[in-house]
Design a protein around this nucleic acid. Structure first.
Lengths: 155, 155
DNA sequence: GTAGAACTTGAAGTTAAGTTCAAGTCAACC
DNA sequence: GGTTGACTTGAACTTAACTTCAAGTTCTAC
């Protein structure tokens, strides 16, 4: 086999992704592969770069959908340039900053609650959406937003 | 109906939880309800306190399983005391602090990458687990851990 | 005493990001 | 040329936290 043709298990070992994940990413259009005569996948070395990008993006907390969009937004949908990488990295940084700010706000609200003397659940405003809050239908609306508004249909 | 007996829709409105969520929480043992003659749910006002607690815990990012445990660990499994609330709040605060620290670490790593001159995906160590890394099977192992190692079986 | 809103149940569906499985095919080496 | 390990596919399963649905019952107000 030509050294530029990597098998599934080789890519899996070098990228850290499970073979099943690689097939899944292929179905999702994140990566691609040629085929051998017998129909087995043969990856170009390039795929390792893409997978590295995907790994980094996942660490930052992007969803596969977002990663797909980021990859599709690249010049020819191909190897990112230095400018691309800089731009994307800065975007990620902003995201992380926003996330930190959000959690800090929540933490500070909790701190206020701990220190404010209303430690009883009966009176604490963070814990107890009482009748005043309920009267206008706001319920626990004064609470900070969830850390990670997830995509589950419910919530 | 006695004013202490709340219907599903009343609790839903005052707590901010959907009726389906209330039934779900009941199945999970987080809340409970009496029944009317005809078999309909009649909640005690106490449930609003519990739901407020649940809402706050969810905002902090606890899973329902963790919330269940927190509620079960209470004195008689009943109304939390001032000491309970203080202890639990502090625990939450520590959690938030840890989460912030984790994201900051990731952000700082990303910053180093942006500034370090290896902005090409071909050379950047964050983006490209190259052959050196691959040789020992570490792949992208030097990357920070995911922000929120979720419970999905895969990953 | 009846219309209509609110309620009941269990089962199945949803989303993300994969994994696991079964049954069969390919590749490589001796 | 045969054995063994690597690979193929599609379908079904996983987890969390609910929602949606269908088909039927209860409550309340007029």
């Amino acid at each position: 086999m030509v050294s530029d043709e990597l098998t599934v298990s080789q890519v899996a070992r070098r990228s850290g992704f499970a073979p099943s994940a690689l097939r899944f990413y292929e179905r999702r259009g994140l990566i691609s592969a040629d085929r051998s005569e017998g129909g087995q996948r043969r990856y170009h070395r390039d795929v390792l770069r893409r997978l590295a990008f995907i790994a980094a993006a996942k660490h930052v907390g992007l969803t596969l959908t977002e990663i797909t969009q980021a990859l599709e937004s690249l010049p020819q949908g191909r190897t990112p340039t230095k400018a691309d990488w800089t731009r994307i990295s800065r975007h990620w940084r902003a995201r992380l900053d926003a996330e930190i700010a959000s959690i800090e706000k929540l933490r500070d609200g909790l701190d206020g609650c701990i220190g404010c003397g209303c430690l009883s659940l009966q009176r604490c405003r963070i814990a107890n959406p009482d009748d005043l809050a309920a009267a206008d239908g706001s319920g626990a609306a004064f609470l900070p937003q969830p850390l990670h508004p997830d995509q589950h249909p419910g919530r």
